[in-house]
Simulated scan of single mutants.
Amino acid sequence: MDGSNEAQATVGKLWEEHLAAAFPTALRGAEAAGIDMVMLDADIAGCVLTWQNTGGYLDADRQRILRSRLSDLDRVLPLLVETNEIHYSQRLRLLAVLTSEHGPAPTN
């Protein structure tokens, strides 16, 4: 299995776990470091879903969004205290990292 297929398999497994996990109750409607946690989750999830649907590529705009939201998540993670919040956010971060490692979709 090459690196791209391996990344897709890993993201697929993590994505299934993420979809099965409940969004932490304490983060609903919460802001950490001025960042809306629901929107942070939704933005990253949207990029991950697009990455999966395009065979492992993101356009330049989604790459930018993902990098920005990954930076936001890195600011938020140290502020989380509940185990379920930390685990949920760490998995979300790993999904963001894995999908951001691929460049923009090739142009024809």
Results as ranks from 00 to 15, higher is better:
Ala30Asn: 02
Gly34Phe: 09
Arg91Met: 12
Ala7Phe: 00
Ser89Asn: 07
Met39Glu: 13
Leu95Val: 13
Ile86Leu: 00
Ala7Pro: 00
Gly55Glu: 13
Leu49Gln: 11
Ile44Pro: 01
Leu66Ser: 08
His18Glu: 10
Ala105Thr: 15
Gly29Pro: 03
Met1Gln: 07
Phe23Tyr: 13
Pro78Tyr: 08
Arg91Thr: 15
Ser100Trp: 04
Arg69Met: 14
Ala105Ser: 15
Leu95Phe: 04
Arg28Trp: 04
Gly103Leu: 09
Leu79Met: 12
Ala60Trp: 11
Ala9Arg: 12
Leu92Val: 01
Arg75Ala: 13
Tyr88Gln: 12
Gly46Leu: 01
Ala22Tyr: 04
Val97Pro: 07
Leu27His: 04
Pro106Val: 05
Glu17Asp: 15
Gly103His: 15
Glu17Cys: 11
Leu92His: 09
Ser89Glu: 05
Asp61Arg: 12
Leu49Phe: 01
Gln8Cys: 01
Phe23Thr: 06
Leu98Pro: 01
Pro78His: 07
Leu40Pro: 07
Thr99Met: 00
Val81Arg: 14
Ala22Cys: 05
Arg75His: 14
Leu77Asp: 04
Trp15His: 11
Val76Ile: 13
Ser68Val: 07
Val81Thr: 14
Trp51Met: 03
Thr99Val: 08
Leu73Asn: 07
Thr25Arg: 05
Ala32Thr: 10
Gly55Tyr: 14
Pro24Ala: 07
Leu40Met: 11
